[in-house]
Amino acid sequence: MKTDQPLIQALGIHKTYNHSHVPVQALDDVSIDIHKGEFTAIVGPSGSGKSTLLNIIGGLDHASRGKILIGGQDISNLSDSDLIDFRKNNIGFVFQSFNLIPVLTAIENIEFIMLLQGTSKAKRSKRAIELLNAVGLGDKLHSRPNQLSGGQQQRVAVARALASKPAFILADEPTASLDSQSANNLLDIMQELNQLEQTTFIFSTHDPRVMDRAERIIHLVDGNIEKDSYTNGNIKQPTLKQLP
């Protein structure tokens, strides 16, 4: 699945927060390469810096020192406005608490990202329906988030993350708010999308179910990479149809 040129390069990332005027080192000289198509889990105890690393890779936060290259482009020095554009066009986000727009229906939530990208109405609708079908929610197009279960909301969030055809998807503890059945269903979908579409997924997680599926696990402890290992992953046979 890997290509020679890394999709994401984190080079010597340092991040220091000021917590009540006391500097706290969240990341200390972290360097990683992630290739297209990888299904990577960043794991570690609370406070190990995994969410911070994910935020910096996603352009949501700035590193105190170091560089992030996405597809060869250095995003470390982009302005806030350019970073918003970059995130919109290159990165899909899946959050722990789903974070769907409460006033929009499932299909509108997915169309929303494409609307921000300037996609035409017809193309938006077509892709949103296909994505919802792909995550098994073809019958919930017009349901609002509060009419969906946690698992269903997270599947809509995955469909939303895929809507903009991003280079990779960042998922911050995506299974933390889900029951076991929903978590497994979600991971099935993500894994199949990874296999079928070569979609790159990067997780930050504590969840052994995610670690069990990941083909690469990066262990962070106190802001340092303690271990970075490739596994075979517990790969299931794909059941999803190819997305357009």
Binding site: S81, I84, R87, N89, F93, I101, I113, L116, S164
Partner: peptide
Amino acid sequence: FEFCVLKAIGMKSYQ
């Protein structure tokens, strides 16, 4: 929180 999410996923401040 909602506004932060919208900004995170790509909505610009002026929008």
